[in-house]
Write a protein that binds this DNA or RNA. Structure first.
Length: 285
DNA sequence: AATACCAACAGTCATTCTCT
DNA sequence: AGAGAATGACTGTTGGTATT
């Protein structure tokens, strides 16, 4: 038995993908992306403009997405990685293309990262971090060799727009060690939201845009009988995107809305059910 | 699909230190 | 001496990816 009636579910879905997703983007996503890229403006427009630059795009990948695992408590490693990048560029963003052109970006970045970690008395966690950092740098290098720009973000963006598919690019980025299903989907989800690409993407690929974390796992069975407490992650992703579609709401925005509850509005997992119950009853703002 | 891994984190409990 | 604070060793949990 699902916790909520179909009618309540439709209200919950529309509120999550509506105002909650909005707030997630404006209060969380754009400001955080802006901060890791180190730009001043935080509107979607300004974030998009920054990401069009290869250097800023790389900062976003390295500082925001690459270490987005394990909740938010891994903030340290991303800060170290950004510091390592600054160091290899000697503080000048103009050096970024030179770095990619050098062909040794992976090694340089990794070495700098090790140094920064040591200075801060943190273990490098080589097994988890090395191929992540190197892999990302390799990816950028490869793109640079093809177009002499090397922008990870826009390259992915264009691949999606051209094909209307998300699967091939998902496979590509999750091949980078350290980027698994969760982070891969997270990145694609935000990108699709930022450029409003969802309607033009093949619905068969929607589950790739549904990162599954503790909160999504918990909320799934409350919304549909097709899920229970130990459904596998990709099943959760699939069923939830289907549920969103049937209710004519954006799956991508639904997922962002849930993340908003997780990190700002509810915070405590135990309170999720009560919160949703209230949400289903109160009238939309 | 199940299992192994990993470092950080959070508790627990015992020991040592410090102050009155 | 004794209460309480600080330190430290040990243990289990967490949330992700890798491996099979």
């Amino acid at each position: 038995m699902a916790t909520f009636t179909p009618y309540e579910v439709s209200i919950i879905l529309s509120r999550l993908s509506g105002e909650k997703a909005d707030r997630f983007q404006k209060e969380v996503l754009y400001p955080q992306l802006a901060r890791t890229m180190r730009i001043s403006g935080t509107s979607s427009q300004e974030v998009r403009e920054a990401l069009a630059d290869a250097y800023y795009a790389f900062r976003a990948m390295l500082g925001y997405y690459a270490f987005a695992k394990r909740g938010n408590d891994r903030a340290e490693y991303s800060a170290f990685a950004l510091q390592a990048l600054d160091r290899t560029l000697k503080g000048k963003k103009e050096n970024f293309s030179t770095l990619l052109a050098s062909g040794s970006a992976p090694q340089q970045l990794w070495e700098a990262f090790v140094q920064v970690c040591q200075e801060n008395q943190r273990k490098v966690n080589e097994q988890l971090n090395r191929e992540l950092i190197e892999g990302l740098a390799e990816f950028a290098t490869r793109i640079y060799q093809e177009d002499e720009i090397g922008n990870i973000w826009t390259t992915i963006h264009q691949a999606i727009v051209r094909s209307g598919r998300v699967e091939p690019i998902y496979q590509q980025i999750t091949e980078i060690r350290g980027i698994g299903p969760k982070v891969g989907s997270l990145l694609l989800r935000d990108m699709v939201a930022l450029y409003e690409l969802e309607p033009s993407i093949d619905a068969a690929d929607y589950h790739y845009l549904q990162p599954v974390d503790t909160w999504i796992r918990r909320i799934g069975p409350m919304l549909t009988d097709e899920l229970n407490n130990d459904s596998a992650d990709w099943i959760i992703a699939g069923k939830l995107s289907k549920l969103c579609r049937r209710n004519r709401v954006s799956g991508v925005r639904f997922n962002q809305g849930v993340q908003y509850l997780a990190i700002v509005e509810v915070r405590k997992l135990e309170q999720l059910k009560d919160y949703l119950r209230q949400l289903a009853q109160s009238t939309p703002a």
